[in-house]
Amino acid sequence: MTGDSIQRSEDAAQVNAERTDVERDDETPSETPCTHLRGEDLAIGYPTTEQPVVECERVDIPAGEVTALVGPNGSGKSTLLKAMAKQLDPDRGHVLLDGAAIRDLGTKELARRLGLLSQENEAPGSLTVEDLVYHGRYPHRSFFESVNDEDEQAVERALELAGVTHLRDEEVGNLSGGQKQLAWIAMVLAQDTDVLLLDEPTTYLDLHHQLRVMEVIRTLNSERDVTVAVVLHDIGQAARFADNLIAMKDGELYDWGPPRKVVSDELLRDVFRVDADVDADHPTGPHISPHRALDD
Rank of each mutant, 00 (worst) to 15 (best):
V54Q: 01
V54G: 01
V230P: 03
S264R: 10
P258A: 10
A100K: 09
A63W: 01
V147S: 04
R112M: 09
S142L: 12
R8I: 12
P259N: 03
F241C: 10
T49K: 10
K249M: 03
G173E: 09
R113P: 02
I102A: 01
S222A: 14
E40L: 13
A68G: 06
T128K: 03
A162T: 00
L182P: 05
D234H: 06
G106F: 02
A123S: 13
D277N: 09
A83F: 07
M214V: 08
T79M: 08
F241M: 15
M1G: 12
D296P: 07
K180M: 04
S142V: 04
P286L: 01
M84S: 00
Y46N: 05
L117I: 10
P139A: 11
V147W: 05
R113Y: 06
E18L: 13
V164E: 03
V172S: 00
V59F: 04
L205E: 05
M214Y: 06
L197Q: 07
P52H: 00
T227N: 06
T202C: 08
E18Y: 08
V147Q: 08
D151G: 08
L220P: 04
E171P: 06
E23T: 13
G3A: 15
P139W: 11
S9L: 15
A83R: 03
D25T: 13
T20H: 13
K180S: 09
V66K: 07
A43R: 07
F144M: 14
I235N: 03
Y204A: 12
A83C: 14
K82P: 02
D275I: 04
A247E: 04
Q181K: 14
L161P: 04
Q14C: 12
R112H: 04
L267K: 07
A162V: 03
H208W: 11
Y204D: 13
L220C: 05
T284A: 13
E156H: 13
A43E: 11
S9T: 14
H140F: 11
L189C: 04
Q119P: 08
